[in-house]
């Protein structure tokens, strides 16, 4: 909103200057030149200021979320971890209610089978069949690698609400990503202890889907790169079905999540998101 009101002011100023009667023509002309030069500089320095109705970074993020949001979803996912020349495939099923709650159960490989993960808000509980115990994870411990992948638990829990509260956003010049025009958003954390201090996000201009995200530490070191490699339409909307995360601190490693099957808005019993369900064989 503030961006819009700002963009009107220079336009008004220009008009006012133009409408002033032309006395002392040479002086006036020099002044005019200066005024025009000033606006040209302003225009170059701050792109977007003049384009009326351009959305803010957070407007775009919210639009993405709106596109992604569903009441409930059931999905079958394959997680493919590639590290050096090894490939490990894990399969899992997941239930989710909006962005708030999710339940994931690993089906393979044998050592992971029966591992269950429950996330409610920013608390993650994991059941390990080998130990027959539930571990509760929260806070900075969510930065751990999730099940040996390039994703952390934190990567799975973040959403736009947190972004708006903890980051300041700006829109950089448009770029194309895989030949599609994209907004480029740069979010900078207001909090020092943020895992990813800066985020650079490429958002498809038409589909409003984040296509690529680069995550940086405060030092400017690139920590992770996320790309969307596959999209599918479900009931008139696009949904990413293949996401690849690369943890740059792990050498030659990447993790691809492939959604094999997804059903939106199916009834899920409340009991799914309980600790009892975790302990149930």
């Amino acid at each position: 909103m503030s961006r819009r009101s700002k963009s009107i002011l220079p336009t008004l100023l220009t008009l006012l200057t133009l409408l002033t009667p032309l006395t002392q023509p040479t002086q006036r002309r020099i002044k005019m030149k200066r005024v025009i030069l000033f606006f040209v500089i302003v225009y170059i320095v701050s792109p977007g200021v003049f384009s009326q109705g351009a959305p803010s970074a957070f407007d775009i993020l919210e639009k993405i979320d709106k596109n992604m949001v569903f009441k409930t979803a059931y999905s079958e996912v394959e997680m493919i971890i590639t590290i050096k020349n090894r490939t490990i495939t894990k399969s899992m099923l997941s239930y989710a209610v909006g962005n708030e709650k999710s339940y994931i159960e690993f089906l393979s490989p044998a050592r992971d089978k029966g591992t269950k993960m429950l996330r409610i808000g920013e608390i993650v509980k994991i059941y390990y069949p080998s130990a027959e115990r539930v571990m509760r994870l929260s806070g900075h411990m969510l930065r751990q690698s999730m099940m040996g992948s390039d994703f952390s638990y934190e990567d799975m829990t973040e959403r736009a609400k947190k972004m708006r509260e903890e980051y300041t956003g700006e829109i950089k010049e448009d770029e194309t990503f895989r030949e599609r025009p994209c907004y480029v958003l740069v979010l900078t954390s207001k909090i020092k202890k943020q895992t990813y201090f800066t985020r650079k996000i490429w958002v498809d201009r038409k589909l409003f889907i984040g296509m690529k995200e680069e995550l940086y530490a405060q030092s400017g070191k690139l920590l992770k790169v996320l790309t969307v490699d596959g999209l599918k339409t479900f009931k008139n909307r696009y949904y990413p079905t293949q996401i690849t995360m690369q943890d740059m601190l792990r050498k030659d490693s990447s993790t691809r999540m492939v959604i094999k099957k997804i059903d939106f808005d199916i009834p899920i019993p409340d009991e799914t998101f309980s600790e009892r369900r975790l302990l149930k064989r």
Binding site: T115, Y128, S130, A131, S145, M147, G148
Partner: peptide
């Protein structure tokens, strides 16, 4: 104390 680790095949394993 519950110990959780990733094994040599990148599976997660825990033991109390």
């Amino acid at each position: 104390l519950l110990l959780v680790t990733t094994d040599i095949n990148y599976s997660t394993y825990a033991l109390p």
